[in-house]
Design a protein around this nucleic acid. Structure first.
Lengths: 253, 253
DNA sequence: CCTGTTTATCGTCAGGCAGACGACTATGAT
DNA sequence: ATCATAGTCGTCTGCCTGACGATAAACAGG
């Protein structure tokens, strides 16, 4: 029964990317404006077709590089300076998700530090970082300039929501939050990442005790910085530990 | 650039299933023997093509029903008596994973109670439950009868390993372990599920305190049973809570 | 019937960790 | 000099876990 070459319907396979970063204390996602129907003029997640000889992870890394210029980490490797974390998120294959044909999309999640160049992309389409809060509040969504925002194209709102939820839960028990930080960062900067992703305020003293007390999470570089104002803060790099045990607890009402 | 109808290569899309259960104190997976090349005669995960008008979750539920007769839960619904938990696991799309053509497989994970009928399946292929330990120790794998076991077909060993790891981590912070139990079960039976999935011994007293002290995890039915021998034990059903907070801690050396 | 075995269930106690919060330090801004 | 801003170190209390003693209620066998 399996694999009769004439018995399977052909599918198009794409990768879509949920690229997240923290900008101005807000969790933001990368969106591109669609230049053609369907959903022409609407914002959508970046993505594209998987090539015939290409692995899924390779296709996702290629799309990420095309849109942002970011290099993805080697999957098994440590958090590398300047690189982005990239992992598979989930696959979406509703028969009606694309009105033109049967498309299965393998969504990936990328976490990137705040990019110095706001629009480094490769092609001419309109690209921007938008707060996920705005993108997901379809009803009351408003753009940066106060204009009402259309919901994302296709099922991309759902994909984005799943990606955000994955990021929110994963920074609890892994050191992934460092993927949002530049190569060297302070404890306070890392705390602001948690606060932006979770949308809560954390006690600076307990946070400091927790992250500096977890072996392998942070390694001091010896330097200090005052780029956040106030007393100089120690600089750290991400340590080798990828799993946090016990996890960072997400405050909850 | 996107969606030029002539610009995308055609893919075949399948769903493969990692169906897990606990039998005789061991975590077991459902495997079928392949009747045709490639990998003819080797064991593989059950699966099949996604139909042209079918959602991915629907295809997975259909395959599960065909192989086991189990009804999958409604995704958002509670743990239903006799039904199996079913969720998407990950997608595997290496260009060379199937030697004949480009196949992308959307793997799903199903957790089922120990089935009374050992071989309820729908078609004539050889089907069995095999301890995951045997299936994953490719080098030293031996079948029930002591004969050496070939590794699973395709990349199914990897998919199985990913599914097992997902199950192992997910029972930590969710009430999913109850999906391995019959509709009514005792605390001791639930503890043996954890012990089989994690491969560790748990303290019965601390486990009892933990699960009965977590609100919404277990609801007593009022009945008791002695089917495990010893003093009669209270019977419970799975409560409404799906998330365990704080989580069940997996002992670790 | 008495005894040993098995499983279930309740209790106690010490250590670890998190939340709340006080205190002090080192910068830059006015 | 003074204030505002961040960072860092400590203390205390309550909760949870792991270790483990003790009791309860069934069955098996003599």
């Amino acid at each position: 029964m399996p694999y009769d070459p004439s018995a399977f319907p052909p599918f198009a396979v794409t990768v879509d990317l949920v690229v997240l970063t923290v900008r101005r204390h807000a969790l933001c996602a990368l969106v591109v404006r669609r230049g053609e129907p369907p959903y022409q003029g609407r914002w959508a997640l970046p993505g594209g077709f998987v090539r015939g000889d290409e692995d899924l992870a390779t296709a996702a890394a290629r799309e990420l590089a095309e849109e942002t210029g970011l290099q993805a980490h080697d999957p098994a490797g440590p958090v590398v300076a300047g690189g982005a974390h990239l992992e598979q998120l989930a696959t979406y294959g509703d028969p009606k998700r694309d009105p033109r044909m049967r498309v299965v999309s393998v969504a990936h999640l990328a976490l990137a530090p705040d990019l110095p160049a706001p629009r480094p992309g490769g092609d001419a389409r309109s690209v921007r970082w938008a707060p996920v809060e705005d993108l997901l509040d379809q009803e009351a969504g408003y753009g940066r300039d106060g204009e009402p925002e259309d919901p994302l194209a296709f099922d991309h709102a759902r994909i984005l929501a799943d990606g955000v939820e994955r990021a929110r839960s994963k920074i609890e028990y892994s050191s992934l939050a460092t993927a949002f930080c530049p190569p060297e960062f302070t404890v306070g900067e890392l705390r602001r990442v948690y606060e932006a992703v979770w949308g809560v305020a954390l006690d600076p003293r307990n946070f400091h005790r927790k992250v500096t007390g977890t072996p392998g999470f942070l390694v001091p570089t010896g330097g200090t910085t005052t780029r956040q104002g106030g007393r100089p803060a120690q600089l750290f790099r991400a340590g080798g530990a990828t799993l946090l045990n016990p996890p960072m607890l997400r405050p909850e009402a």
